[in-house]
Design a binder for these strands. Structure first.
Length: 806
DNA sequence: ACAGGCCTGGTTTTT
DNA sequence: CCAGGCCTGT
């Protein structure tokens, strides 16, 4: 019986599957089959070790991963294992979704509104803005985003407002905002994402009897992507496993890329300290990538100091050369990508769905999309403007949430005047303030204005004893009053019928009666698009029609609050995939393009100062590279539009690391300062790029084994990589790269002519002050603030910059 | 109350 | 470059 569950597993994987008792830590390199191990282990627990499904909890990183694991387990067992939708079956899900369910079940002990709503960061920011307003704090000085970051960090570290340590005045403000924000969430019956985690952890810490129930239930715990757990998650897991100690953690320090949201790869080390008897299993056999791809990955990650060296192996052989390509700018970069894809697909080697294009930031997708649209290549974009971020979807959801939980002021404020019903900002603020004074939610305030004292939304109010039968004096004029009462009637109508309708029926009723549908469909194409999105939301809602009536809306709202980008990744049709490297985690593609490999883009400029953050960038690059199975393209652009300005960035250090490991020199940086406008420079390349043939030959002789040599063997439009694009890319480089040992390529030792503070003269822009200056390969790049002309970055020699007398 | 236009300012990554 | 905030005029 057990043999089929172990068939096809290597010895290390087998050990991971069958070590049932006690703590186990699996250090799993990319492509080492950890997903497989997890599924087999669950199946093994159920089938061989005799575990009951309800005693197993498996935590995945995305909802999609949870779904896949469920399917795999069912397949392995040849039957459908009941899954916990109530509290009977197997528990598989993300931390967030599992916690949401626990909090729903434990609303009483946790002191929560059982109909709590989950705020995304937009709504979180609204709540923070209200907090700032209440505290009369200037938004300019204390930015809501910064406050959100501070609050989130605190919650991830399980710090409550009363324990929030403050050493600066700024932190003191943050502490007060945090405290007020918590009050607002509570009043609105809302939780934010971080709450889902830390509330459960607090609940377990503070109420041992509750914890004991969960400890007794969950005898087997499995946690995937352990390197991306934060403190709250780590503590939660340890507490849950406190009784049985059957904790199975899978992770890879090298793939920890969520530090910015509190994840700490050191939890892997902490695990070893907290469970000194843990069995540690290494999965080093890679089943995904070719050797050359692994070599590239290794070249990148090996430079991190804070890691344990590993030895990834593959049986797949060397494989195709990793291709490096230099494009002129982001448009050209996109051209190269599309060209290459069309060629590979045209030759029948691959299908569109085999291809992923990955980038550091979402903003980079735009130029790629343009190229795909122009060439008629179907693509799907993951992330970006996500479905659930669209205005019409958020509006519709806000309506539903308000009906679900009338105390939710943030949702109310979102929809009270959408479509416009003559309730302006002034009226809304007045309603918020006055309702607060009366000690009721804004919906409660509306009920008071409408004189509906029997309304259930006023429950708390009556208990505290306003004068019975008489609504209090309100500050609204006749016009505002009328509008508010009209809205209240609308809302009341929905509250009365919500229990008898399915979610899609309710949604239809609301959009209809609120006039939202007609308002949206204003005759424009965009209006129709938005309407269609709404229809799509409705069809998602239809999945919940079969749920028990009291659960329908709850379950639906919970799901839509917790969907992630990756969850959209159904690989139905023939399209290429565009996604950030972050969302690519856990996925694999036969063909991967990593684009935008420039300093300040990838690695991101925000990570330049801090070595720890730079290590995270490196891990991110490592994740990107290791997504590729067969073919990997590393692409960089000489210049790029960034923030509406054209920027010239050095090639990414990661590119250099990869090249160095391949033993060749890479003439990548010398294009620096080559004025792109020079006539004729781009010509030869256009027609196949053999305009510089002699140089190519000479290079071939120079270093036979360099990547240049390798890529030269490949087809014309990908062979250009190293020498400034003799291929499909335009060639902007007037002369071949001086061979340069990659190691010392970091920065030429030359004294800068300009330093910050210097006054300079420019022929066109006049006088300015130097902000920053960096020596480059053959020039000096100076950032200057010009009076009345803004800040420009110039190449000193090219721009003929002169020092001006002080 | 609201539409439209100007300006500023901010841009990593996401459950 | 873009969104969102702010101001103006209706």
């Amino acid at each position: 019986m057990s043999s089929d569950l172990l068939a096809g597993l290597n010895p290390a994987q087998r050990e991971a599957v069958t070590t049932v008792k006690g703590p186990v830590l699996v250090l799993a390199g990319p492509g080492s089959g950890k997903t497989r191990v997890l599924a087999h282990r669950v199946a093994y627990l159920l089938r061989v070790a005799g575990a009951h499904p309800r005693s197993v909890m498996a935590v995945t990183f995305t909802n999609k991963a949870a779904g896949e694991m469920r399917e795999r387990i069912n397949k392995l067992l040849g039957e459908a294992v009941p899954v916990s939708s109530g509290w009977k079956g197997l528990t598989i899900g993300t931390f967030h979704s599992i916690c949401a369910r626990i909090l729903r079940a434990e609303a009483g002990p946790a002191g929560l509104n059982p109909n709590y709503v989950i705020y995304d960061d937009g709504e979180q920011l609204s709540a923070i803005r209200s907090a700032l307003k209440d505290l009369k704090i200037d938004e300019k000085m204390y930015r809501p985003e910064a406050m959100r970051a501070a609050i989130s960090k605190a919650k991830n570290e399980l710090v409550k407002p009363e324990n929030f340590a403050t050493t600066t005045y700024y932190e003191e403000i943050a502490r007060r905002v945090y405290a007020r924000y918590e009050q607002i969430l509570k009043a609105n019956g809302a939780l934010d994402f971080d709450d889902l985690l830390c509330r459960v952890t607090w609940l377990f810490k503070e109420q041992p009897d509750v914890l004991a129930r969960y400890q007794d239930r969950y005898e087997y715990l499995l946690v995937d992507e352990f390197q991306d757990t934060n403190s709250a998650q780590y503590e939660m897991v340890c507490m849950l496993a406190g009784r049985t100690r059957n904790l199975f953690a899978v992770g890879d320090e090298d793939q920890s890329i969520y530090g910015f949201r509190g994840a700490d790869y050191r939890n892997v080390l902490r695990f070893r300290e907290d469970f000194p008897d843990a069995r540690v299993i290494l999965l080093e056999q890679n089943y995904r990538s070719t050797q050359l791809i692994l070599d590239a990955a290794n070249a990148v990650i090996a430079r991190n100091i804070k890691r344990t060296p590993k030895h990834l192996r593959t049986d797949r052989g060397a494989g195709a050369q990793v291709i490096l390509h230099e494009a002129y700018d982001e448009t050209d970069e996109a051209q190269f990508v599309v060209n290459t894809i069309q060629r590979l697909v045209g030759s029948g080697e691959i299908r569109l769905s085999d291809v992923a294009i990955m980038y550091r930031t979402n903003a980079q997708s735009r130029s790629l999309e343009d190229a795909f649209v122009a060439r008629g290549v179907p693509y799907r974009l993951i992330g970006g403007t996500r479905f659930y971020q669209r205005k019409e979807i958020k509006d519709a959801l806000a309506y539903l949430r308000l009906v679900h939980n009338p105390a939710d002021n943030v949702s109310l404020m979102r929809v009270i005047n959408v479509p416009p019903r003559a309730i302006g900002d002034k009226t809304i603020s007045a309603l918020a303030a006055w309702s607060g004074e009366q000690g009721v939610s804004m919906t409660g305030g509306l009920a008071l204005v409408a004189g509906d004292l029997a309304s259930p939304v006023l429950e708390g109010y009556r208990a505290e004893g306003g004068k019975p039968g008489k609504p209090p004096q309100h500050p609204f004029g006749t016009a505002a009053n009328k509008a508010l009462v009209a809205f209240y009637r609308l809302l009341k109508g929905w509250l009365d019928v919500k229990d008898g309708l399915t979610v899609s029926q309710l949604l239809e009723k609301i959009t209809e009666q609120a006039g939202y549908a007609t308002w949206l469909r204003d005759g424009t194409e965009e209006g129709e698009d938005r309407w269609e999105n709404l229809q799509e939301l409705s069809s998602v809602a239809a999945h919940y029609d079969d749920f028990p009536p009291e659960l329908r809306l709850t379950a639906f709202l919970e799901e839509v609050a917790l969907v992630s980008d990756q969850d959209e990744l159904a690989e139905q049709d023939e399209r290429v995939t565009l996604l950030t490297v972050h969302t690519a985690k856990g996925l694999e593609f036969p063909v991967v393009f990593l684009v935008g490999l420039e300093e300040n883009v990838f690695p991101h400029s925000r990570s330049m100062e801090d070595p720890d953050q730079m290590e995270e960038e490196r891990r991110l690059m490592y994740v990107g590279v290791t997504r590729a199975k067969d073919r990997l393209y590393l692409v960089r652009a000489f210049r790029r539009m960034l923030w509406g300005r054209s920027e010239i960035n050095e090639p990414s250090r990661f590119l250099r690391d990869v090249a160095a490991a391949q033993g060749g020199t890479m003439g990548m940086s010398p294009v620096r300062g080559a004025p792109s406008r020079t006539a004729g420079m781009m010509d030869g390349a256009r027609s196949g790029g053999w305009g510089y043939e002699p140089r190519d030959r000479r290079r071939a002789a120079d270093d036979e084994d360099s990547w240049g040599g390798a890529s030269r063997r490949s087809r014309p439009d990908e062979k250009s990589s190293l020498y400034g694009g003799t291929g499909g890319s335009r060639s902007w480089m007037p002369k071949p790269a001086p061979p340069q040992p990659p190691k010392k390529a970091e920065r030429p030792a030359r004294e800068p002519q300009f330093k910050p503070g210097d006054r300079v003269d420019h022929g066109l822009f006049g006088q300015g002050i130097v902000l920053k200056s960096e020596v480059t390969a053959d020039d000096e790049e100076v950032t200057v603030a010009f009076q009345g002309k803004g800040t420009k970055t110039l190449l000193a020699g090219f721009a003929k910059l002169r020092k001006a007398p002080r």
